[in-house]
């Protein structure tokens, strides 16, 4: 166990107010299974158990709400056990959009970029998290970029990386392009008031 994942840190994380839909644990599970298989999923579960917060991913209900601290703990343990770098965490966020039940339910609205950006994106966020708020800032289809702001969501830096991939994945489902990228341009952990993500595509 790294110095980062101390019991104190875990306690602190679990102290964060706010909840998240169980679907995010399901997508975490999918990722681990696809990348490393059952054996590593068991390792992750054991590690969580050691930390005193066991998660049985199979028993997680997609639509139920769980503590947001647990969600962050899941990511940190997976990163630790699978020895993932930031790119892999970003990939986790991207792949999550492709197996998320909530995204599938909302996908019926993915016929208009304008609509998804202005209306559905904030909804998607609210359907996943009980804290934080998505604010669409700018969409320029001609110049092929969009700016999204995430306010009141200072939980852990790993979420910034994860969300970069997540927004990129959403972009892939609504924009027909061969290349799309997402980058966090503002971050509360860097002194900004909020997170801001810039999506660009070709």
């Amino acid at each position: 166990m790294s110095q980062e994942l101390t019991k104190e840190l875990v306690q602190k994380l679990l102290g964060i107010k706010g909840e998240v839909r169980g679907v995010v644990f399901r997508t975490d599970r999918e990722y681990v299974l696809r990348k490393k298989g059952e054996e590593y999923l068991e390792k992750v579960e054991k590690e969580l158990e050691k930390l005193g917060y066991p998660i049985k991913y199979e028993e997680i209900k997609s639509m139920n709400f769980y503590p947001i601290g647990l969600r962050i703990l899941s990511l940190l343990v997976i990163k630790e056990v699978l020895n993932l770098n930031d790119d892999a965490i970003k990939e986790m966020g991207l792949v999550a959009t492709k197996s998320s039940l909530i995204i599938k339910i909302l996908a019926k609205f993915f016929f208009s970029l304008q609509r998804v950006f202005a209306t559905e994106a904030p909804k998607i966020w609210k359907k996943h998290y009980t804290i934080g708020e998505i604010e669409p800032v700018e969409l320029n289809e001609e110049k092929k970029y969009a700016i999204l702001r995430l306010k009141d969501f200072k939980v852990h830096k790993i979420m910034c990386t994860y969300l970069e991939g997540y927004f990129c994945g959403i972009g892939q489902l609504i924009i027909k392009t061969s290349k799309i990228e997402s980058k966090e341009t503002k971050c509360p952990f860097l002194g900004d008031e909020y997170h801001e993500f810039l999506l660009t595509w070709e």
Partner: peptide
């Protein structure tokens, strides 16, 4: 989707096309 993006696929498609689900 209405703009022609695949939003969901099953393992049979994964198998015949040779592409992974993601």
């Amino acid at each position: 989707s209405s703009i022609g993006i695949i939003l969901e696929a099953n393992p049979a498609l994964e198998e015949i096309s040779g592409y992974q689900m993601e």
